[in-house]
């Protein structure tokens, strides 16, 4: 995403687009990801109801197969949430995942879509706000991406 794409979030258009986002599949690792989402829940931090969390063992387990499964079956976008770099509980799963996702992003660009339909975030188990921040960022980016390039569903 270019900086101009991130630029203006407060456009009234965005609210309409955001309302259309129904299913945002988020793969969260069993350690920091799930931990952060749980902490956010316990602290009653609200976020968009479109977020659908899938529990996986490690972000390194989420391959393009899973991501494409989600997108093919109607997900608006896919997020992968793992531990911070260097703090993966399974050593380096998040780094492996990151490179796969970079390639997928490139693929989406080559197909003429925004690369925001898949992205990776990090969270910290003790800080629920990190996961909420991730979710909000996902929705915001997706809204901008859809505004500029349309949804990925159009292409299916």
């Amino acid at each position: 995403m270019t900086s101009s794409e991130v630029g203006d979030f407060c456009d009234p258009m965005d609210a309409e687009i955001k309302a259309k986002i129904k299913n945002l599949v988020v793969f969260m690792c069993n350690e920091c990801g799930q931990g952060a989402a749980n902490t956010a829940g316990v602290a009653r931090m609200g976020y968009d109801a479109a977020i659908r969390i899938v529990r996986v063992q490690c972000s390194g387990q989420v391959g393009p197969i899973q991501i494409m499964d989600a997108l093919n079956n109607g997900a608006d976008a896919v997020g992968v949430v793992g531990c911070c770099l260097g703090a993966c509980h399974f050593f380096n799963g998040n780094i492996l995942s990151m490179h796969r996702i970079k390639l997928m992003k490139k693929l989406f660009k080559e197909l003429g879509y925004s690369d925001q339909f898949v992205n990776q975030w990090t969270a910290r188990a003790a800080e629920g706000e990190t996961s909420v921040g991730d979710f909000e960022d996902m929705v915001d980016r997706l809204a901008v991406a859809i505004k500029n390039k349309g949804t990925i569903k159009d292409g299916c």
Binding site: V25, R52, V54, D69, A70, N72, N73, A75
Partner: peptide, 12 residues
């Protein structure tokens, strides 16, 4: 698991 969470409408 992913299919229902994605909305279950197959596009591709």
């Amino acid at each position: 698991e992913i299919i229902p969470l994605s909305g279950g409408e197959a596009h591709c």
